[in-house]
Amino acid sequence: MSILEEELALEKLMARYVDAANRRDGHAWAQTWAENGCWNLMGMEVKGRDSILALWQQVVAGFDFALLVPGSHLFEINGDTAQGHWYLQEFTRDLQNERHCAISRYLDSYVKVDGQWLFQTRRYDFIYRGPGDLSGDYTPLPE
């Protein structure tokens, strides 16, 4: 595959991830992860697809509504592995009817398994979380 085809396949991986998350389809969402993947969600790290899915289900259960909107991204592809990041906007309403807007970044590593790209590691960091008018606090990204 050309670099362009590989990048398109990585974009499709994120599209599958976001689509499954927005539909709350845990099975489809978990299938975007490598079996031995690692997710660092705001400092809480879990390893293995089953543990990653369990954490996701716990987080999703706290929301009445959540919508992820992916934005810009960059990849560095090296054979069957890659590094990259995605910026996201998120809109949520929790079970107490509190609404938030978030701008965040996923810092990722990817692995190709049986010809399909999967998330190997993901580290999630907030850049902003608060009211939709952006009157909340900005958090600089870690390096």
Rank of each mutant, 00 (worst) to 15 (best):
W86N: 13
S72F: 00
G48I: 06
I103Y: 12
W29Y: 07
T32W: 01
D114E: 06
Q58V: 04
M44A: 10
W29C: 13
S104Q: 09
A34H: 09
C38Q: 09
E45K: 11
Q31V: 02
A61M: 12
Q96M: 09
L95S: 07
N78M: 07
R123V: 08
K47F: 09
H27P: 10
D108R: 05
I77V: 13
W56E: 15
R122G: 02
G115N: 02
I52K: 05
I127N: 01
A102C: 09
F65K: 15
L118S: 01
Q96L: 06
K47M: 09
V46T: 11
F75L: 11
D80R: 02
G37S: 08
D114R: 01
D114G: 08
T81M: 05
F63P: 13
L67A: 14
V111I: 15
P70K: 11
E76W: 00
T81W: 02
M44P: 14
Q96V: 02
M42V: 12
M44N: 11
L107V: 07
G71A: 04
L55Y: 02
G37Q: 03
K47G: 06
V59F: 09
Y87I: 03
D94Y: 05
I52C: 13
M44F: 14
V59L: 11
Q120C: 06
E98C: 10
Y106K: 13
A82W: 00
F75V: 11
T32A: 04
R93V: 09
T92G: 02
S109F: 04
R105A: 06
F91T: 11
Q83C: 06
G62I: 05
V111L: 09
G43W: 04
F126T: 05
Q116G: 12
F63A: 07
Q120G: 01
Q58I: 01
H73I: 05
L68N: 09
